[in-house]
Amino acid sequence: MITVKNLRKKYGSKVVLKGINLNVEKGECVVIIGPSGCGKSTLLRCINGIEKVTSGKVIFEDKDINNPKVDINKIREKMGMVFQQFNLFPHLTVKENIVLAPIKLKLMSKEDANKKALELLELIDLKDKVDMYPSQLSGGQKQRIAIARSLIMNPDVMLFDEPTSALDPEMVDEVSNLMKDLAKQGMTMIVVTHEMSFVKECATRVIFMENGNIIEEGTVKEIFENPKSDRLKEFLSKVK
């Protein structure tokens, strides 16, 4: 579904990604772990084209997303993204946040979008917040709504960029549980996270990155119980 080929990314003279190769199949839940500043988030942002790649390719459903002839906006409709800082639209209510894209992109009628939004809010247990503004919500609620906002687009894949890192500890679980539900329903996911309970429970594959490179890759068991590289051993000893 997603193929990353020899992806390199430079900011000025600073090389952030040094030739990443990655293949994600439908239904996989790929989790990327690694110390901060290793390029995890940049990789995710290159996959949905928010960052332009320096060289290499990102292929999504047989389309090269950096090809100028490909409509990147059409691709992003099918590629949900959840941010560390939620990025809800503060001037819109919860419902308006969720229905904005499907209505403005004419993918749904207003009635259908509103109905779908209520269904999603029911699913994430926030139906009572439908007419509130984001400033009236807690971090965990905001992040769940941000997830609902992506889900209404019926994405083929969801990208999560440290979705629980900006949350108070007691709110991590509500977001983490929602993500677990999604993974169990077979949603294709690429997740950058430090939330190890999620990794152990849901990851079909774990990727350890450091310094712009993929150092190690394997199942949860392989990575956590039998780490090969010293760097990964060191990292795991710190996050446990």
Partner: peptide, 15 residues
């Protein structure tokens, strides 16, 4: 306006 707002808009497929 925070750049994250633009990125969130883009990520939903808005131009």
């Amino acid at each position: 306006i925070d750049n994250g707002q633009i990125e969130a808009g883009y990520s939903l497929g808005l131009n």
